[in-house]
Design a binder for these strands. Structure first.
Lengths: 241, 241
DNA sequence: CAGTGGTCTAGACCACTGC
DNA sequence: CAGTGGTCTAGACCACTGA
């Protein structure tokens, strides 16, 4: 972590140092980092150089700046998640969090595909959740969620009703684990069991499958999730320049 | 165009001026814009301010900078097109431009949906192209392409064989129209005729439908295109921070 | 009001390109 | 080699925030 490449520009080295402190939780989400003037003084560099370093972090989404208030460590928002592009019937304009119903929770031996995705040894112990998500009482999404057992073992003791509609705050509160970034992959496939049943779709109907690997600040995988929803709900828009 | 809001920061006003010259084709794609020093001298501002203005244009994708060479007006690359995420069977790693076969070309009265998309009066005259795209001789994509008739009328005289695999260079060469940006929307639907036939799929198979509105530098619509491909070829990946 | 980030200046020197 | 953009300095003043 502390390695500093002297060939890198000054502002890059400062960026790396700040990024390291955020990654190691020395500076936590929501907290302010030192002011430009303080960083310039403590590092013996000009304010313009400090500003450039911080601008890079802003572009990378690690911090936010507010004129008159300061610079703050950003809590990752999942606004850019592909789930954002699912448009459930009768939800024009709304972007509510769907209700959540945990259908099952069990510890298990990780299937090879899961172990590989989570980058843990094969046959490791994991937790598997099966979750149904509902909007106005109608099922809109089916999710299987895989977690390495050791860091998440306290979830096995949590009463099923106390899983809220959002899991990541629960991970942070119960297990002290912060999801900092994620990768998502979207494909389209005909739905099979048990998901057709959970979604209330006929077998073979096209669904979008969103696979998400969520990671902590160091890039270590925390959760692997596969979400399915009817393909007809998906609409994605992009601008090209 | 030439309006300048004195309340805007200096660098923003310079950005707007440069953007205007690019939009009006005074500075064309591939050409270098004046150097930082020249812009600073001609506008009576510091080089740092000029740099900031140009940085904004770089972030917006309008220009590219190369150390030691200069700053150049960017030709829009469609690298971010959703078509990039179609993975045709047996094409791992390759990203060739598929072959192109124009199946039909006709002038027509614009259907309302097309006129609205192109922002032209209803019942305007348009050109409609139907195109099949092939990889290794197998059909992989079916496209309908709508163009306003007046600016594109010279396309009606072009021998069918001379439509190359890429249309935008043809638009520029024959009609003097430059595609500067585009919006794409992706949805998933069961395929109907004639597209099932063109793609060699059974009726009702899931396809991705990519609707693209291509515009010139002023945002005026030039082309509306609907491309269909088997949903099984689609794979989209995104990072979340 | 003190303190924050935002804009802007007027330089210096460096790294890279192309002739 | 001259000319380009890239890095960096050491200031000044402005606009906004919160106590």
């Amino acid at each position: 972590m502390g390695s500093v490449d002297q060939r890198l520009p000054l502002y890059q080295r400062l960026r790396d140092e700040i990024a390291g402190r955020i990654a190691s939780h020395a500076w936590r989400p929501g907290e302010a980092i030192p002011t430009e003037a303080e960083l310039a003084a403590s590092h013996g560099m000009a304010i313009g150089t400090v500003r450039k370093a911080i601008q890079v972090l802003v572009d990378e989404g690690m911090v936010e700046r507010f004129q008159g208030r300061g610079t703050f460590v950003r809590r990752p928002s999942f606004d850019s998640s592909l789930l954002r592009f699912l448009r459930f019937q009768g939800t024009e304009g709304r972007h509510d969090v769907p209700d959540s119903k945990i259908l099952s929770r069990e510890s298990a031996v990780a299937p090879d595909a899961v172990a590989d995705a989570l980058k843990i040894p094969r046959d490791s112990a994991v937790i598997r959740l099966l979750r149904q998500r509902l909007l106005d009482g109608r099922p809109v999404m089916a999710e299987e969620i895989w977690l390495p057992l050791a860091p998440f073992s306290s979830l096995l003791a949590l009463p099923m009703e106390e899983f809220g509609p959002l899991l990541y705050p629960t991970y942070e509160r119960l297990c002290g684990l912060i999801v900092a970034s994620a990768e998502e992959t979207l494909t389209i496939e005909p739905v099979g069991e048990p998901y057709a049943d959970i979604l209330g779709l006929g077998a073979g109907t096209a669904v979008v499958l969103i696979e998400r690997l969520a990671m902590n600040h160091e890039g270590r995988p925390l959760e692997w999730r596969r979400s399915r929803a009817a393909a007809s709900t998906f609409r994605y828009r992009v601008e090209i320049r």
